[in-house]
Design a protein around this nucleic acid. Structure first.
Lengths: 124, 124
DNA sequence: TCAATATATTCCGATTTAGGAATGTGTCAA
DNA sequence: TTGACACATTCCTAAATCGGAATATATTGA
């Protein structure tokens, strides 16, 4: 049986910093030969090829053969499962920002009211 | 030196299916004792404790002691780095959906025009 | 204090994973 | 056909990771 290689599910795929680095290189939407990616990274070609293989199996990149080159391109849709999963929690910190914003506005309003009432604010 | 335990960065933290499961349990915003989480999962208490430890170090959950219980609560803000990272790619598939929608609308419009012109469409 | 309960920690083995080195494969150009 | 590229694959080792078992620690109640 084949020795288990790099992971192929998208969550594990993006867990590896170097694979996120590869994705960053591809994030302009252009296609890149393996060579060009290697030049932009600090690991050797076989390692890059293996990471690209993992990303491909995870559905995050696509390849086409062009001459002696393999052109890799980002398939951003492959990241959608991660986005969908994490988006569920967006409202938690959004809400918090809202609360902060609201508090700031309330404070500003209170200041304005105090100014309207002059330098000696009423106490209750 | 200490035997390296579970990972503590947020990307690796959520790469583990069982840790995402823990997060799902906590996703109602309520606090849960370790016990209660164990009941909802298929792994033993020590494994759950270890996953909770990883999530805590990753900043995804918080703990407070209450009596002999440790109450865990989701800290959704800890997931923000993942959200921020993946959000950058949102536009790719959003755009694609837009394109599909636009094509559908263009086709529908073409059909309407053809209907206006009768069953024998002009050719160009 | 002692037993029970809740949880963390340590120790361990099995498995996964990353990357280097070596090698295989396909394509091009002369 | 041959050599030079571009890239993938295989083999290997070290390290990371997971989960079970056993054990440690803390809290509570009797």
């Amino acid at each position: 049986m084949t020795r288990k290689a790099y992971p192929t599910d998208v969550f594990s795929a993006i867990a590896e910093p170097r694979r996120r680095e590869v994705i960053t290189v591809l994030s302009d939407g252009q296609e890149y030969a393996v060579n060009e990616i290697v030049l932009r990274m600090k690991i050797a070609q076989p390692a890059v090829s293996k990471h690209l293989g993992a990303l491909r199996k995870a559905g995050v990149v696509t390849v086409v053969k062009r001459g002696q080159h393999r052109m890799y391109r980002l398939n951003a849709a492959g990241l959608k499962p991660v986005h969908d999963w994490v988006k569920v929690f967006e409202r938690y910190w959004m809400h918090q920002v809202d609360q902060i914003k609201q508090r700031a506005e309330r404070k500003a309003l209170e200041r304005m009211i105090r100014l309207d009432e002059g330098p000696n604010p009423k106490e209750e």
